[in-house]
Design a protein around this nucleic acid. Sequence first.
RNA 1: GGGCCUGUAGCUCAGCUGGCUAGAGCGCACCCCUGAUAAGGGUGAGGUCCGAGGUUCGAGUCCUCGUAGGCCCA
Length: 937
Amino acid sequence: MTDQQAEKPNYKKTLNLPKTAFPMKANLAQNEPQSLKKWLASGLYDRVRSARADAPRFIFHDGPPYANGDIHVGHLMNKVLKDLVVRSRLMEGEWCDYVPGWDCHGLPIEYRVMTELVESGKIAKLADLEEDARRMAVRRECRKYAEKSQKRQRTQMERLLTFADYDNPYLTMQPEFEGATVEVFADLVAAGLVYRDLKPVHWSIDNETALAEAELEYRDCEDCSIYVEFEAADREAVGRVFGVELDTTPSFMIWTTTPWTLVANLAIAVHERFDYALARIDGSETIIASALLEKVAAMGGAEEIEILGTCTGAQLDGLRYRHPFCDRESPVVLADYVTLEDGTGLVHTAPGHGADDYRTGLREGLEVYCPVLGDGTYDETVPEWMRGLSIWKANPEVVERLRESGHLFHDHLFTHSYPHDWRSKTPVIFRATEQWFIGVDKDFADGGSLRQRATEAVNTTVSFVPAWGRNRMLGMLESRPDWCLSRQRAWGLPIPAFSRPDGESFLTAASARAVAEAFRARGSDAWFTETPKELLASYDLASDPDAPEGLDLSSLTKMQDIFDVWFESGSSWNSVMRERDLGFPVDLYLEGSDQHRGWFQASLLPGIGVTGESPYRTLITHGFMVDKDGRKMSKSGGNALAVEELLKSYGADVCRWWVSSLAFENDVKVDVEFFRLAGESYRKIRNTVRFLLSNLVGFEPDKHQVALEDIEPHTADGWILGHAAQVERHVREALHRYAFREAHLAIYDFCNDALSATYCVAVKDRLYCDAEDSSRRRACQSTIFVLADLLCRLLAPIIPHTASEIHGSLHGEGIEVFEASHLGLSYESATEWPAIMRQREGVLKALEEAKARGIENPLDAGVVVPDPEDAFAAFAEDFADLCGVSRARFEHGIGEIEIEDLREELRCERSWKRDGTVRARSDGGLLSDRDAAAIGL
RNA sequence: GGGCCUGUAGCUCAGCUGGCUAGAGCGCACCCCUGAUAAGGGUGAGGUCCGAGGUUCGAGUCCUCGUAGGCCCA
């Protein structure tokens, strides 16, 4: 027994079996940081940049994430999508700067810092400081926090293998950025677009300060809810609308929970599509939304209700009414925020005391009337009985007055959630204060408003991916109000405005430029540490045509507003792209679809205002992360995925492979499960490449490479090369138009179908069994070398670490794949291949059926395939391998595929084929002619 | 409440300007290989195209109204 076995030749040793150091297991979490280190150490970014100094440039501009907290899956997708663009361009031989940015100023950081100061008790020390010193103390803490967050996020983003210039990022708190941003502002001032006006903000009476959204907390609060009747000014006009004759004057019934604001009432808002009724309620005529009539009447204890007529809100538009206790008339206007949930369907409107009211007032040209002072008392413009009264004391007073004068229909106490100052825990009011604005409807000297010009640009010079972005943007441009630029906070870029002794503000283009110069040199902290004179050192009053007459610079004091952070990031096309000479206008901005209102619009308006053109040529938007059921990801809920964990479990390349597979224009479902699936698909690619690499043992390109033109178009090599050339063109073209998913699928299908399931299986026989140096085997290895090289480059933009691994395996460690470009493979395979591959489908089905006859292994079969045109004979040899059978022939005389049972024929002990040439050889083994020759028998 | 978008096999998605028995991959089931082996290959079963109306000779595709979800605004 043992002897017999020893006698049997061991043919396995004579085969050229695959061998490679390229591991099946990627170990990405361990190995990617090594790659990263290697690239950083060798200065890859700079190396590629200088090598591409004269190459065509693609101008990309990174939008700044907020420097706060760890990056989340949304950042992961955003940054990787950007990197796909950048690396795609590199692989096309172009250069594309990726200068990463961070948004550093703003409330979220200031709020956090303030909370920490309060909790640590340090806040008490600040209280004694002067205003500027106090703000500087806060700013120093905020800067520290922003720097820390930025560094943290930088590391996390680098870990995603993004090819960006992390050593030279832009931060909105950098002096040059600040200076360049104020210069944008100066240009807008020069264009006459900037003005100062009243606008309602959340106001804390206790602290006498404006509050931002994040400084509010909502608490339950008991308030007086009142239904008030405002007499119509023109009885007949109302009668005409409702088509009735009226003997008495009807009223408009409004509802409010803030009686103290009634004194500032300047309009009543109705919804144009709602129905309104003119009703006689217990003898008096009242106008109220039809849907609410019964409910309100019942609340007021009414006994008799008679509807005299109805109309739509649109018909009420323009009617006028008399204020119940002030001597004035005001209009009925339309507003789309009117609802039928509460109240009467007619909304009390006080433009100085509500955000909605304010917008409506702006549109209707109403005064922003705010008779309430910072300490919560009324000023001199109100009726005498209210003057000097605190608004909280005024509330019951107002109700009583209305009751006495017969204007009160009903009142009751009720509990609702109402905003409070988070520090003093006192209720907050809406109060109009002076703010800076950019006017979107102000005409330029040469005609046209910002709104018109921006709309024009969006319609003509900007392309949108996906295309519906244009509509969305246009809709937002159409309805947006003037841009309120100012905020009353410490952590931001100061608005370079001064006030004069008479209370007027001083701000001209030239004075703003002088401050910009100071910021550029010494940072915006200068605003808090320097005098107006120092800040305006480079300002020449005499040569400023816009300077007000008789201005005395030494009498100026600094105003305390800072810019809306969106103005800072919205100026980055200047503060980064023009400032650093990176290119303008920019070819591409790529962000989440929320940025249609955010950064895209914040960039478009200043861009148009200053340069006359859109700062970007193409806008790409991606959707948002939702959970696996399509629901919003909640920050507090458990469905948020930690990027760090994903990187640890799957690695950056798998995460990137996942990103490239997404239909990113829509919302993206995210769940660990999807990363696991991406990992499996990644392994499929990796194993396929590994198979290719492992069959290049002993293949030295210099010595053995067969030129492409010498590879026969009718062989399996010819087939795959033609296929590969097509795939390369497709993938490059898809990447070019940002169809990453399409590129991903094309690569995957090529690896999975064309290579793994078809080509690789087919050529195993010749790779393993042909003589090592046979021309057929060398041609196959040459093909494999080209395929691996081609795939490596196609994969480079998506999975850079793996591509680098493959490239190293093929070409050694000297040069990185990112310094190279695509192969540009050109090869035409035989035109018969599509027809032949269709025949292969048929053969595979027939083989499956043949299993029932006992032919379970395809090598036990031969196939005969119809060839009516006698066109396929040359393909027979490779066709057999492509079907996995022992032999194949084409015959023109038959109608359908025939499977031959070869089980009775001898089987080659080396190749396991039954090709008809198998016989006993001198070494005692059964071998086919090819195999005998291969081992020199 | 308004604007924009999405809803096709268990899952992720293709289906362009209306015209084949609605496609692919994954997963699943069954089978093969054991010389890519914590790999590889074959075959197959899966769909009231969110719902209801309408236009049309014909609708997954166009229109209207719903419904569920997302972004932005209010």
